[in-house]
Computed example of a mutant assay.
Amino acid sequence: MLYARDFASTCRIALVGGEPAGFVIGYRRPADPSCLFIWQVAVDERFRGLGLAGRMLDDLLHDDVVSPPVRILQTTITDDNAASQQTFRSLARRWNDAPMVVTPLFESAHLTHPSDAAHHEPERLYEIGPSM
């Protein structure tokens, strides 16, 4: 709710039959407002396969009301999240076959406290944009 309140111009919610079906949470990078960082994309399992994630992302990229226009999109994805990787590869293709560069950002040691039993996979930075 805080993201929707404070970053409404960079968040989206999908409704199907008036029911919340998914959301995208993002923000403009303070150092570069033309860069949109996507923090979370989620679609309720009942509504997967309808292209909702892609449509919400497309809507953010092509929002003519917000200035400056998005020229770079960033997100982080773990190596084991094939669905997210495919969502952003598809986005790059739809965005005029924009280049996509994947680089290391956070390694497991950055994300997992030594006392935690759970292990967090490394997060790779995905940068997409025709203006890169």
Rank of each mutant, 00 (worst) to 15 (best):
V43N: 03
V16I: 05
D32F: 06
P122R: 04
L105S: 09
L105H: 08
A82C: 06
L52R: 03
H119E: 10
H119K: 14
F37M: 11
T112N: 12
G18C: 08
T87G: 07
V102A: 07
A21V: 00
D80V: 10
S67V: 08
G26M: 02
H119F: 11
D63Q: 08
A109P: 01
D32W: 04
A21N: 04
L2D: 12
T87Q: 04
G54Y: 07
I77V: 15
P20S: 01
D64P: 02
A98G: 07
L52T: 05
E19H: 08
V66S: 05
Y126E: 01
A92C: 09
P122Q: 07
D97Q: 14
D79M: 00
L50F: 14
F7C: 13
D97C: 12
H119L: 12
G54A: 09
M56L: 12
F47N: 11
A21Y: 00
R89T: 13
L61G: 05
M100I: 15
L2P: 11
R29P: 00
A118W: 01
C11T: 12
W95C: 09
G49L: 09
L36R: 06
S90Q: 13
D116N: 15
S131I: 00
C35W: 01
T112D: 12
S115H: 13
S108M: 11
R5G: 06
R93Q: 14
G51D: 08
G22L: 06
D116S: 15
A117E: 15
F23V: 00
C11P: 07
L125R: 12
A53G: 11
E127Q: 10
R28H: 02
E107N: 12
C11R: 04
N81V: 08
A98C: 12
A109R: 14
R89H: 14
R12W: 04
G51C: 11
D116V: 06
T10N: 10
L111Y: 10
L15K: 06
L50S: 03
D44S: 13
R29K: 14
E123D: 12
A8M: 05
Q86G: 07
Q86H: 15
P114I: 12
F23Q: 00
G22D: 01
